[in-house]
Design a protein around this nucleic acid. Sequence first.
DNA 1: TATTGTTATACTCTATAACTATA
DNA 2: TATAGTTATAGAGTATAACAATA
Lengths: 159, 159
Amino acid sequence: MRRTTLDLGPLPDALGYMLRRAQIKVFAGFHAAFDRDDIRPAQYSVLVVIGRNPGVLASEISQALAIKPANLAPMVADFETRGLIRREKLAHDRRSHGLFLSADGFRFVKTLERRQKALEARIIRAFGARERGELIALLVRLTAAADLEPDEETVDNAD
Amino acid sequence: MRRTTLDLGPLPDALGYMLRRAQIKVFAGFHAAFDRDDIRPAQYSVLVVIGRNPGVLASEISQALAIKPANLAPMVADFETRGLIRREKLAHDRRSHGLFLSADGFRFVKTLERRQKALEARIIRAFGARERGELIALLVRLTAAADLEPDEETVDNAD
DNA sequence: TATTGTTATACTCTATAACTATA
DNA sequence: TATAGTTATAGAGTATAACAATA
């Protein structure tokens, strides 16, 4: 080994870089816990939302979870094939379907939520309960904060 | 609108979910700032590392930034095509090349680092300086913490 | 035999555009 | 005309396997 460690310069002080590294690490834990259920992160979030909001529309899920309708459609179709959800055409607007968990789907989501809880418990063991709580609180506030794209007035042309 | 907001249940308390939402938001700011330079997040990180570690090997970058060698190779080739770096075959091990920024590359990376600094400044305006500092500190500690994949002893079979 | 770097390739995730059926 | 949902498809990003050159 020619070098012990590399100088990463400003990278550890770049919020995006650190968010990405942390996200990859936590997602690795997710995959270790959920791969046996053949459930990916986005699928988990959609099933949870259907479970908490019976009759929810695809467009509402799309907006709440920032998943493009075109990517949500095959996911929902897959859930229906697997018998996890059913769709009910709305009486007053027959373009939309209300989405509901089936009985199997309900049991399945309960299992998934238990796995999620166990994963958070592992995070607490590796990282600390207070640390995890503070981190999540900060992430919620950052996600709710104003956009980060500069508008035309604010842009600095340092090129 | 049928519903004002959806019930997201345990999602906002799932660290992976919140990390992903936050990362997408911050990356949107990155793209707004760096797209004109035709530089993606991973490319930025590699150029910074080459700049701070003249003569660094591809294998070292690969390990430090968790980028697979197979994905790093075309990136480095692209940098060379763009005149940003040069490669020097090592005398004592002719399989490896030391990587160096060119004069153009050095100026370019300085510009990129200025953009990064401006992006962090926008984050501070939208989110708060203390909040950003605490968040990064927690992310650094989380990334350094133990693995989150359960080993065979620890696994809970709640299915 | 093992290692560095490369090529080819596949898979996932995300994005756009065009279509359908309803409104 | 506009909207909800779908299909097809293309582009990133990331993964594995096989290979060449060198150790």
